[in-house]
Design a binder for these strands. Structure first.
Lengths: 193, 193
DNA sequence: CGCATTCTGGACAGCATTGTCAATAACAAG
DNA sequence: CTTGTTATTGACAATGCTGTCCAGAATGCG
């Protein structure tokens, strides 16, 4: 009953996500967004409402998909520990471009801190899901004898989350894949021995 | 032989550091800087040259002092391992405000990535010094039997750096001190057992 | 005291950015 | 085809930001 949108909302959001991922929030102008999304100014405001809304929506999508991927990978492994290892190794063995790009979630925390409620809530939700996934994987790994029995799965899952954060930052800072692997190896020696 | 500056350059730089630390680079305007530093616009440009130069100088100062503090703490401990532990615990037990503030070095990496040569160089220099300090501490800890002999000090030092990065981000994201301590504990169990 | 030199404060140009407005275009239902 | 509704386009106002300029003020040296 009215003129349909000439662009795909999801595709446009994906383009916006790319720009924010590459440049951060403050360094991205609405024009940067418009050009990357291939839409007019008014379309952007009508469809998404605001630069900040675009960001929040892109961040939510990023977090959801990232965590989904990890959760799937954790379920898919040949064994609980192997699955965890593959998740961690993925960050160490990513391509140079991926490593340089870093993690949008981490950047969001750095740029906004926990003072921004909306951003913090998205981060907390992602962290909670990740925590659950790691915790069950660790519990199974303990049961399977792949991990030292003295390890508390809850604390271990927190540790894995921190480990991933550290690896992501290190990677973005330019640490070599070999050194990233070394970090992961030390961490896993500590979980098993 | 000429009019002296009416402000202390170091104090002003410290104020600028505070602002950048709190808000990041892009979100900080030159007016934000001027007001915090308590100086006029022209004084800022004459004394420091540029918003970017102020940032780089503040970042360098931050990195140097932070690493200095860690190095001193590592030398001061009653034993190598206890010293390392106290360094790590410091991040977990910091005040709520300190935790929310996070690490300027990490924020710099997130905001600029490794593409910005000047920023990356500062980060690399700090990382190298930290690596040395942790590595010697670990070597001594291994020799003293405080750490499992299978631990490679080089890899272990890399691991400790990543651990700190992960803790800093987690802290800024709002993770509770108890959870931060749990992470540290898991890490240290892995180093000793 | 006079002078050279440097700092300070206010003003300003140029540009970027954000969000809105109004006119036009495209579509679907009646 | 007409009409109501929504998308698109280009323009625009308001504001903020950066870096510079200039006139005036302060200081130490001769």
């Amino acid at each position: 009953m009215a003129r349909p949108r000439a662009f795909d909302r999801d595709v446009a959001l994906g383009a916006a996500l790319d720009v924010f991922w590459r440049n951060g929030y403050e360094a991205t102008s609405t024009d940067d967004l418009r050009y990357a999304m291939g839409i007019g100014r008014q379309s952007l405001y009508d469809t998404f409402g605001d630069k900040r809304r675009v960001y929040l929506e892109a961040l939510e999508r990023y977090q959801t998909r990232s965590v989904d991927a990890v959760v799937a990978q954790l379920r898919a492994g040949p064994s609980p520990l192997a699955a965890i290892r593959s998740v961690v190794s993925a960050y160490a063995s990513a391509s140079a471009e991926e490593r340089a790009l870093g993690c949008l979630g981490v950047s969001a925390i750095c740029e906004f801190g926990s003072a921004d409620k909306a951003v913090a809530a998205l981060g907390a939700a992602a962290a909670a899901r990740l925590q659950d996934a790691f915790e069950t994987a660790l519990r199974e790994a303990v049961r399977a004898g792949e991990v030292r029995p003295s390890l508390d799965p809850h604390a271990g899952a927190l540790f894995l989350q921190s480990l991933l954060l550290g690896l992501k930052i290190s990677a973005k800072a330019g640490t070599s894949p070999q050194n990233l692997r070394d970090v992961a190896n030390v961490a896993f020696e500590g979980l098993t021995s």
